[in-house]
Design a protein around this nucleic acid. Sequence first.
DNA 1: GATAGATAATTGGTCATCCAATCAAGAACC
DNA 2: GGTTCTTGATTGGATGACCAATTATCTATC
Lengths: 199, 199
Amino acid sequence: MSPKVGVAPLRREQIVRATIRCLAREGYSGLTMRKVSREAGVSQGILHYYFTDKRAILVAALGAVMEDLDARIRAAQARSGPDAVARLRALIEASLRTALEAREVWVVFVEFWGEMMHDDRLRTINAGLYTRMRRLIGALIRQGTRRGQFRPVEPTRAAAVVLGLLDGVALQVTFDPKAFDVATATRFCQEALGRYLAR
Amino acid sequence: MSPKVGVAPLRREQIVRATIRCLAREGYSGLTMRKVSREAGVSQGILHYYFTDKRAILVAALGAVMEDLDARIRAAQARSGPDAVARLRALIEASLRTALEAREVWVVFVEFWGEMMHDDRLRTINAGLYTRMRRLIGALIRQGTRRGQFRPVEPTRAAAVVLGLLDGVALQVTFDPKAFDVATATRFCQEALGRYLAR
DNA sequence: GATAGATAATTGGTCATCCAATCAAGAACC
DNA sequence: GGTTCTTGATTGGATGACCAATTATCTATC
């Protein structure tokens, strides 16, 4: 008597999660269908039942970790309150904290970047994610500017700067978690952005 | 009558450059010894005469593009003059310009990151490069601070911020060269760091 | 609410292909 | 004559995709 509804999506999720664990452990160059199926505890054949090919599994893994990051950011922002400055602050801290607490998220990002650069379809997906992220940050900046909390800046470009700093520092944390503790990294990023956006 | 001196190193270089072209075109997951040998116009066997294995070729490719970036930074700094602010400015512009003019440099970085995260030996190499880069930037910041051009900051942490911003923005340029022109990106980075380090 | 028939999900084995590394043999150079 | 350099064929193994067969689940009908 297994649940009737949601079995198929659960199996899908099960495969994707196994893929993420494999990617975190051995990267995309070490990813094989056999390893994913073993990690998920299913047969090899079923992977091609739910996904057309290996690339589709990678895309699904990216989507999953992106949702994980989104959820963490949203949760942090829910805690921070509605103020634009506070929400930007929460976004930064959640992203950096994720690099430490859910390292696989950023690992999958990097693995995807490596493939995306040589595949038009994947590149389109990545471009969409970056555009969306820039828009999200840009909206916060616009809001802060409108209320006089930030100096007047071009929101799109400023968002690119914020996103760049975020990516770059999160990368350093992912590469060497002992190089910085998250609290310090967060403080420095926020100080830098505070000064960048200060009136 | 080929030149007597430097043939072996030239052949090595020839293989490394072919590897970089292959990586730029198809990434590490698409890199095979056969493709590298074809691209270089040599036999497959010789690759293992100059390199112990595939990983060693990747390491050599990373070293080569890192030297390329270094050379570009040094050249820009030679033009900029000895002032710490100007040299930092030159470093930023050279790095971003490289992402556009020599895209393969940053592509190889990303491909290396993907492997490095799952290989201790490669991770050590990467950690060394980052430490060196942070030191380099840190020294410039320290110099600027000492001369009163920058506010007092902890140079190591500030260097991490600068390096993070640099990586993050260069990545965005590499992923989508049309998203920003280098002049704008450079201006925004320098504005951000100027404000970050301003007294 | 039992049953049969259809559909969906899952298995494990197969296959053609490709790969990194090795090696013996030969060519070029000193 | 010996060392360095280079070749291309070989080897043993792994890989992604495919598929026929099996099982589980659902649905319509009585």
